[in-house]
Write a protein that binds this DNA or RNA. Structure first.
Lengths: 345, 345
DNA sequence: GCACGCCGTGGAATCGATTACATCGACGTG
DNA sequence: CACGTCGATGTAATCGATTCCACGGCGTGC
């Protein structure tokens, strides 16, 4: 593969001049510029990003460590992150932690070794020494979706409180009183917060959230199934199951079906994180939708701000409730002649 | 960030010795080794992968350019690729082409500039000069899922012929005779092959595939919707719609619902590419399942073989039919007491 | 007792870029 | 006319690693 030296030789100039042309430095004669450009063309030369990074100490690359690629929420997040990064002149390397702290650490280490310019993390746990050290050492870093309290790193996330209140209002108006939740791991902020928001919203209606109605999940489908089975085995099973993420909702749906029960007739179901597939499930699932794309873009902007020496601030965007049929018939039956279209959004 | 020089100073040895310890070269005294290791520990030193890559001309990184991350099939593929690569000591940089040739080119160029050791591609189109040049120039490369004919690059893919024959047999046994297909882009091999396999399978039963029953899609949900609407508008609409990928199947489902029609009673639906969500849609969707994880792993093995100087061969694995309820009741009604479990797979 | 070989080590070249500094000619001004 | 300035270019140091080569010391064999 041709190097800058080859180009210099071909164009009959020094490597410095070639470099100047490539980085369009002003003080290069038009004459030299055209000769260099021609040489670049004939040799099919492309600058070696590795060498360039070594010299400039910049890789123009962001690292993104997410908890689970197979979760459509994170897939969409990753996609929007890459889009915005590309628009700002950066590439993205994605590391999938699969909800495993050891894998998360592996990826963080790998990304730091590669000298990425900044790190976007949705932490799986409370944060390993590695990550905390990196943050302290000044690696530009931004948390997205989940974060670690007490660490001085901007956080870009959605606030689901209002949407959860709307959800509980919706459930209450449908007559549901015994509401249960499948929580995420207590080590994650989203795992804890969603339970809190739910409990708080229940309080508004004078409802309790008994321990028996809090199932411990791990954001994976299988745990949703297991927890739901536990709920169904209770002497007084809940009327509603609220899953703290979409995969656990899927597991819950499985568990309910496996018993030969029906949603929403026998038990209602709602989920945190809306995804396109929820429109097509049987029944369509009512969910709290995060502005995923916006989150990804805002996170990249905050990170690039940090990298380029600007402040880089935290952002919190509101989530919103999307009502479908999994909790019972909506309170305001639609006048529309084609009721099937109601839940298309 | 500490460099190898700092470590050498701290340990009181030369950088050469430090390097030898790090790459566990045999000829280093135990004494020196422990001193270096201690220095590494106290400084929290990590070798700079950028510098190492420049010197060794190896990045231990694979590039993966896929057609669409939001498609669960490709997400799973990406995941298995990363897993196998990690097991073999490589990292993966994913580029999402979003079915756009220009974006595909952007990512290929970016990956080549970064001097990745090898490239895994699922081409969106017939291949740009850039990609073809890279292949000819000797960049280790493997095609996965889709490929470009006439290019000397190993191909790892699934053969859906047998499964499509099984599908058509299934449909035929249910009494369906007017079968239509939503094809993928003609520029992709999978776009063409699936139509051919379908036509061939129909031939076995003496059935034709008229042009009116071949809709041109682009592997995205919206095109599935559009094509399906076209089918439904025909004077004699098909009894079955076979979508050449899962997203177009989703679009088809939308279109059918929007008309107030029901699957499978009014029209049957099947898809190429099975995904977990098809178990949960209304109704569960009959699909041709590829051994996605195996494909990803085999592709990585083939690519790493090439990189490390071994042959690196093409692999073709069989796809298989997964029958669910979207084409009508299966011919052999299950004896099982809990019929809802039938389609859990 | 001497020469040879081997082991452990350090010096220095190298990978492919960027960039500070030096050089050189042309031009403008006092 | 001389000197300072500026524009265009080249030389060489540098980034952080790896690795070839040389060198000193020690053990072994004849």
């Amino acid at each position: 593969m041709a190097s800058i030296k080859d180009v210099a030789a071909e164009a009959g100039v020094s490597v410095a001049t070639v470099s100047r042309v490539l980085n369009d430095h002003p003080s290069v004669s038009a004459e030299a510029r055209t000769r260099v450009l021609a040489a670049v063309e004939t040799l099919g030369y492309r600058p070696n990003a590795v060498a360039r990074s070594l010299r400039t100490d910049q890789t123009h690359t962001l690292g993104l460590v997410i908890s689970d690629v197979m979760n459509p929420y994170f897939t969409e997040l990753a996609r929007s992150v890459e889009e915005e990064a590309r628009a700002l002149g950066y590439s993205v390397i994605i590391g999938n932690a699969d909800e495993r702290p050891d894998l998360q650490d592996h990826h963080v280490r790998n990304l730091l070794d590669r000298r990425i310019d900044g790190l976007l993390v949705s932490p799986t746990d409370g944060g390993s020494p590695l990550m905390l050290d990196a943050a302290r050492a000044g690696t530009p870093m931004v948390f997205v979706d989940r974060w670690i309290p007490g660490v001085d790193v901007p956080v870009v996330r959605a606030d689901g409180r209002a949407a959860v209140r709307d959800l509980v209002a919706h459930l209450h108006s449908l007559g549901h009183r015994r509401l249960a939740i499948i929580a995420g791991p207590a080590a994650t902020t989203t795992g804890r917060e969603r339970v809190e928001a739910f409990r708080e919203a229940l309080g508004v209606y004078g409802l309790e959230l008994p321990d028996a109605y809090i199932g411990q999940g791990d954001f994976q489908a299988e745990s949703g199934r297991r927890v739901t089975e536990g709920f169904l085995d209770l002497p007084e099973p809940p009327e509603v199951v609220f899953a703290a993420d979409n995969l656990m909702a899927l597991g819950a749906l499985d568990a309910v079906r496996a018993r030969g029960l029906r949603v929403p007739d026998d038990i209602a179901l709602a989920a945190f994180d809306d995804i396109p597939w929820f429109v097509h499930t049987d029944p369509p699932v009512t969910a709290v939708a995060q502005p995923t794309g916006e989150l990804g873009r805002a996170a990249v902007r905050a990170l690039v701000d940090r990298i380029e020496g600007r402040p880089g601030e935290s952002v919190t965007l509101p989530a919103r409730l999307v009502v479908r049929r999994s909790c019972g018939e909506p309170p305001n039956p639609p006048q529309s002649p084609t009721p099937v279209q109601r839940s298309t959004s």
